[in-house]
Design a protein around this nucleic acid. Structure first.
Lengths: 244, 244
DNA sequence: CGAAGGGTTGAGCCCCTTCAATCTTAGTGG
DNA sequence: CCACTAAGATTGAAGGGGCTCAACCCTTCG
């Protein structure tokens, strides 16, 4: 259940036992339900067991900026719960299965078991690396490049989470939500997706994305995967050459 | 020397002793000198003792996006050094005094001394909160609002670092660098600063900024300070009402 | 079958960029 | 002390990328 952290270290039996013994309560959320509201003081940390969620903030004028998309296995809300007061919202994108773990227990296990603490810390560092990449995306790339970049990032993250292949996956997001990730309008997101489609880089059916030409899409998106810190070609030893 | 971490916890004598005993080497850097280059594998973490530094990345097309500005007391490079390979550049903004601490020693002290480890972890979480705010800034706010927001953020952070007052400080940045923070062009940054000046929100002389009307500037910048997690009105008990 | 959410498309506009010129300031060498 | 230089600030004019507004279509679901 908490195995995703294993990416950063190999846990021994005691570590695993401690993780599995963590007190928690389960919950499910419907799409669009708010998990943590800005200004709230959550006393527990939220782990996403299945489904998708996203973090966002509403700026003056009512526009929304999405900061990150989370998929099953992600610890969504370390920041808000450890720092006391939430400075942004966490919301369900799809139907979600959640586990809430008291922040105290999280803090305790992190410092009692350095291996686990280190994994959690590293996880927050990678989160920050993704934030940085999004700053660059939104700040310095044009609309088509932003979209291509986002699609590439999702591809690798979903594959790493075992939720698809890097060249074909399901993405349960509306174009308006994609717009709020990229700082564009839904209208323009539509045009850019269409353009990528027309140029043969991707194909789309409903909410599924097929990347027809990974190399070209990555180039179009100015995408280099290093910031994600995903060990390439993990279990199903895909053809590494394809990634670059 | 490492006291900034004390914001997050009160250290006992042993903690302080351990921090002061940390092995390190000192260095100075000239303005614009690169401290860590993207792709490098730094084996030590960089602490800024005086001066200013910034983190950035060059995107395809040669444009630059700045991710953060650091001031004395900041630990600049935990991420790059802990995760192995740098995914962005760290560069001196002004003349800098630096201390390099071996990453191993950092890791060790973080886990041997939970109070310190927690402080470091929290520090990275606040960094991430600032990244998120910058995503929102660049993604969903217009040019003038972005500039006002950035000026407010600098004001509070500089004051918290003891480098100025929230309504008057020195900012050693060119307009081109401000542009790379906000995803604008230097030309437009100039126009927006001028506009804020003309409207009586700020005054500028050389590199110093005077905030004539904090309330109005904060409103114009859609700025709420909570994400910075700065305990308001710390030592020189300024008039709290002024902040909001 | 009707309604609602979301995708698609077109036309016109505007914020910001681009390009380029001028001005100011600080630093340098004579 | 001053000419000379370079970096950065300032300003204007013109163009474009993305936005706004508004319509229409498609799919899903009660």
């Amino acid at each position: 259940m908490l195995r995703k952290l294993g990416k950063w270290a190999s846990f021994n039996h005691e570590d695993r036992a401690a993780l599995l013994a963590l007190p928690h309560s389960l919950a499910t959320m419907a799409p669009n339900q708010i998990i943590v509201r800005e200004g709230a003081q959550p006393s527990s940390t939220c782990l996403l067991r299945s489904g998708f969620a996203y973090r966002h903030k509403i700026v003056s004028g009512g526009m929304r900026q999405i900061f990150s998309i989370h998929m099953s296995g992600d610890i969504i809300d370390l920041q808000n719960s450890l720092l006391g007061t939430a400075d942004h919202n966490v919301q369900a994108l799809t139907h979600c299965d959640l586990a809430f773990i008291p922040s105290d227990a999280v803090r305790r296990i992190a410092f009692d078991r350095p291996t686990i603490g280190r994994a959690m810390w590293y996880d927050t560092l990678v989160d920050a690396a993704i934030f940085r990449e999004w700053i660059a995306n939104v700040g310095r790339r044009d609309a088509k490049t932003r979209m291509a970049h986002l699609l590439c990032e999702f591809a690798l993250r979903l594959e790493a989470a075992g939720l698809g292949r890097h060249n074909a996956y399901e993405l349960p997001m509306t174009q308006e939500q994609l717009a709020d990730c990229t700082g564009l309008t839904s209208v323009h997101v539509n045009r850019m997706l269409r353009a990528l489609d027309r140029e043969g880089l991707i194909s789309r059916t409903k909410r599924s994305v097929i990347i027809d030409d990974w190399k070209k899409l990555a180039r179009a998106g100015d995408f280099e995967s290093n910031y994600l810190r995903i060990p390439l070609a993990s279990p199903p030893a895909t053809n590494e050459a394809e990634y670059d």
